[in-house]
């Protein structure tokens, strides 16, 4: 069995995780999901390191991953404190509210704007139908099944 195969597979999985995390970091707008994407990228790098560590029979790669975990814990502490302060000031977790934090002379990214959510479904109890079905006027069709 060729030991290169193990490294090859692990590095491919690590590259996939890195790419997926990068896509999430660029495109998602929730601050916490962006931070999760960074952690996914870190896990991809950790997978490559553990594969090389196994390949060379050396513990250096595993020690690196221990430091990655330590730095990720620090990063989580500081970044979540910052996110909490930002969300307290802005009232939400949308990163588009912080687009003024960019370099001078650079155009802001295109913002499609948050999608307007449908109103939440009414918390009514559906009742067991009894008797003849009444003729429902069309303007009452949305709440008639619930009353």
């Amino acid at each position: 069995m060729n030991p290169v195969a193990l490294v090859h597979d692990y590095l491919a999985v690590g590259a996939l995780l890195f790419g997926i995390g990068l896509i999430g970091l660029i495109s998602r707008r929730n601050l916490i999901v962006m931070f999760l994407s960074v952690e996914i990228m870190l896990q991809g790098v950790s997978l490559s390191l553990v594969a090389w560590s196994r390949f060379h029979g050396d513990e250096g790669g595993q020690v690196f991953i221990l430091f990655i975990i330590a730095v990720a814990a620090c990063e989580a502490a500081v970044a979540l404190a910052l996110i909490l302060m930002l969300s307290c000031q802005a009232g939400n977790l949308d990163v588009a509210g912080w687009r003024r934090l960019r370099e001078e002379g650079i155009e802001p990214p295109v913002d499609p704007g948050p999608e307007t959510l449908p109103p939440p479904a009414p918390d009514w109890i559906p009742l067991t139908p009894v008797g003849r079905a009444p003729d429902v006027p069309p303007e009452e069709t949305d709440y008639r099944p619930y009353v």
């Binding site: 896509i23 660029i26 707008r29 969300s87 307290c88 939400n92 990214p109 295109v110 499609p112 948050p114």
Partner: peptide, 24 residues
């Protein structure tokens, strides 16, 4: 703490989804 209502409109959209997918 920060999003107690659970759902938000900005979770339903993406910034530059096509470009980020191409990059990744």
């Amino acid at each position: 703490l920060a999003q107690p209502e659970g759902r938000a409109g900005y979770d339903r959209t993406s910034t530059e989804a096509l470009l980020s997918a191409v990059t990744g």
